[in-house]
Structures are given as C-alpha cells and as structure tokens.
Amino acid sequence: MTQKEYNNGVSLWADEVYRFAVHCGGGEELSKDAVQEAYASLWECRERIPVEKGKAYLLTVAHNHLMSHHRREQVYQRVLPQLTPAVSVAPDERFDLQEALRKAMARLPHVQQAAIELKDVEGYSCREIAEILSLTEKQVSVYLFRARVSLKKTLIALGYDNNN
C-alpha cells in the first residue's frame, strides 16, 4: 500500500471504522482512539498490507483496541448490566425499530455487537468476520445466532412484533 493509497483509505474507510467502533460500544472518545490506533498501525504496516485488505485490517485493529479497553474495564463491565438503564420506549411513542435495535445492541456482549455490525452494516461474510475478529467461522455463526435471538427477545419485551 502506497502513501497515496493509504490517504485514499482514510477518505474511504475512516467513517466506517469510526461507526463500527461507536456501534461496538466504543463511545466517542474511545472510538476516536480506536480509529487513530487503527490508522497508525496501518501506516506502520502499509508495505505488507494490500489495499484490498486495508479496511479489514483497520476493523481488526479497532476491534482489538476496543476489546483491550473492555478487558481493562472488566470490573466496570461486570456491573454494566446493572448500571445500564433498561431499554424502554413509551407506549404512545412511535416505534423506531432501528433506534430500538441500537439500544438493544448496547446490551449485547461486545463480540456479538462486532459480529452483527460487520455482518449487517459492513456486509462481511462469516469467514471474513472470523478473520477480522480472530475467531473461527463456527464461532461467528454461533455469536450471530445468539445476538439475533437476544435482540428479538429485547424487541418483543419492548412491544415490537413483526406487524409493526
């Protein structure tokens, strides 16, 4: 990857990597850090990373950054479900499926969030997701299954049904 290709990669992928980090529970500051680290790592390794692998590499580094942060915050993570306010939507409020999904996503384990984000938003296959998240393909399938079942349970608890 040349310097020009790297700079093109900033224009093309920075928003997507940042969005991925935000949706995986990064928050604004942590997501910015993740993007910075991802691009810094890509710049360091640009000579051995082909352009077509650039985005996947960025997502991998960003995800690893988020995971290491979450591991450091393990104590906080243990009490997170208690601190996270219950997802609720007022009965008379128009049900916004995507907003509810995002709120429900926040309650998923980070690896499931990342798998769903990469599958639904980034459009990666299970094999590619496995490569990015350093998992096996079977593990990705299981995480996706668990994530979707959890999301559906949360949405039903919120009053969502398929007819909405």
Binding site: D15, V17, Y18, V149, L155, I156
Partner: peptide, 27 residues
C-alpha cells in the same frame, strides 16, 4: 430460540462521520 431467530431483523447503515479525519492523513 429457532423461532425467535429473524434473519430479516438487521441493522441498517447509519452515517456517523469520523471527526478529525484530516489528522489521519500523511503528507
């Protein structure tokens, strides 16, 4: 669980611009 699995229940792409994108460039 199998009944709850809804393959059509998918997140859609949302636009969240990355701040300070220029700082990532190398000149």
């Amino acid at each position: 669980e199998l009944a709850l699995y809804d393959p059509d229940l998918k997140l859609t792409e949302s636009h969240i611009p990355c701040p300070n994108k220029e700082s990532l460039l190398h000149h």
